[in-house]
Amino acid sequence: MSDINLYTTEKPIKLILKVAGNGCNIDCSYCFEKNKKNSHGIMSATFLKDLLSKIDSQVSIVFHGGEPLLIGIKKMDELLQVVSESYADKVIAVKVQTNGILISEEWIQLLFYKYVNLHIEIAISLDGTNEMNSLRVNKQGKSTYEKVIETYRLLDKHNIKAGMLSVISRNSLTVIKEYIKLLQSINNLSFVKLNPLFNLKDNKLAENSISPSEYANFVLEIAKVYIQNRLYEKIAIEPILSMIQKINGRVSRYCNYSTCKCFEFISVYPDGTLGPCDSFSAEEFLITVDDNSLENSILNALRQVNANKLKQLLSSCEECDIKDFCMSGCLSQRYYFESNSDLSEDYCISKKILYEFAKGYMI
């Protein structure tokens, strides 16, 4: 099995900048971020500059949320100026993950014209069709679907491509063809990532959440239509791309299927709170940065009890027949499933479902 690490100093750090904390301008019913106790403040340029000075390795940056554009154009300009000063020696990539509601001509001028040298990539959260997207509503409880579609069209006018992150809920399971049709209709779509809704309440799947096997079967049905329609010639869909890569012995850049996991991604909040991948609660995996380099601070955090639990999850995969395909999956999902043996077992079953499908595309 390829060596899988929670963190390695040999790869760039991926900074997930929660520049507006977990503040957001919409009210998704399933949002994990809004339940966190972190600050709703705004990240300062001084804080970001200081943080970058404590990093020895190269980094990629994602402006994330909550909703990152809530900080406003002036504050974002200040942050991008700091990033620009370190590009491309230290900062090697810049991305924005947004719900798309606030994107305007003014934002486009800032992100893609004033800072054209940063080659900023953008991805928008859209769960799919209006029906699939029904859990993503504004503060008045109204649909965000049409506004997001308008944002794709606005970006397209400027020849700007955008990705799509879709949360797959129970609303998604029966509208496969409609979802593919939507993807085909967005001219400037660059990639798609299918994220399962695995929220728990009282140690059981919460309302609108789906089981790992249901998610796997959804992915398979999407893959069949995706391949049949040759949509792969236009866009990549994760995890389908990684499934085909891994079954053919290739390297995947998607963390679920890669050798480097949760602490390669560092979530940064305006109040100075740092943690690993934002699928975790930072409070459970706190990274303390004083005068140490961030790299040393991450290594210290890996000695915590909860980090040892993640290492145990990795160790539990050693004897698995599909370990080189699955690569231990998403550790945050498995971590929160640990107290529910049925969900933990179903998670592994879901990976075997995906493996059996991918075998048919072995070259």
Score class of each variant (00 low, 15 high):
Leu17Gly: 11
Leu17Trp: 07
Cys28Met: 04
Cys28Leu: 07
Ser29Arg: 07
Leu52Glu: 10
Ser53Met: 07
Ile55Trp: 01
Ser57Trp: 05
Ser60Leu: 08
Ile61Asp: 00
Asp77Ala: 12
Glu78Ser: 14
Leu80Val: 04
Gln81Pro: 00
Val82Glu: 06
Lys90Thr: 02
Val91Asp: 03
Ala93Gly: 15
Thr98Ala: 03
Asn99Ser: 01
Glu106Ile: 10
Gln109Cys: 06
His119Ser: 13
Glu121Cys: 11
Ala123Trp: 02
Ser125Leu: 11
Met132Trp: 01
Met132Val: 03
Ser134Leu: 03
Val137Gln: 05
Lys142Ser: 11
Lys147Ser: 10
Tyr152Glu: 10
Arg153Asn: 15
Leu155Gly: 01
Lys161Leu: 05
Ser172Val: 11
Gln184Arg: 14
Asn203Trp: 03
Glu221Ile: 02
Lys234His: 12
Ile235Phe: 05
Gln245Arg: 15
Lys246Asn: 14
Cys260Thr: 12
Val268Ala: 08
Pro270Asn: 12
Glu284Gln: 06
Leu286Asn: 12
Ile287Thr: 08
Asn292Glu: 13
Asn292Gln: 12
Leu294Glu: 05
Ile298Phe: 00
Ser315Asn: 15
Lys323Leu: 04
Ser328Lys: 02
Arg334Phe: 03
Asp342Ile: 14
Leu343Pro: 01
Leu354Ala: 15
Phe357Gly: 00
Met362Trp: 10
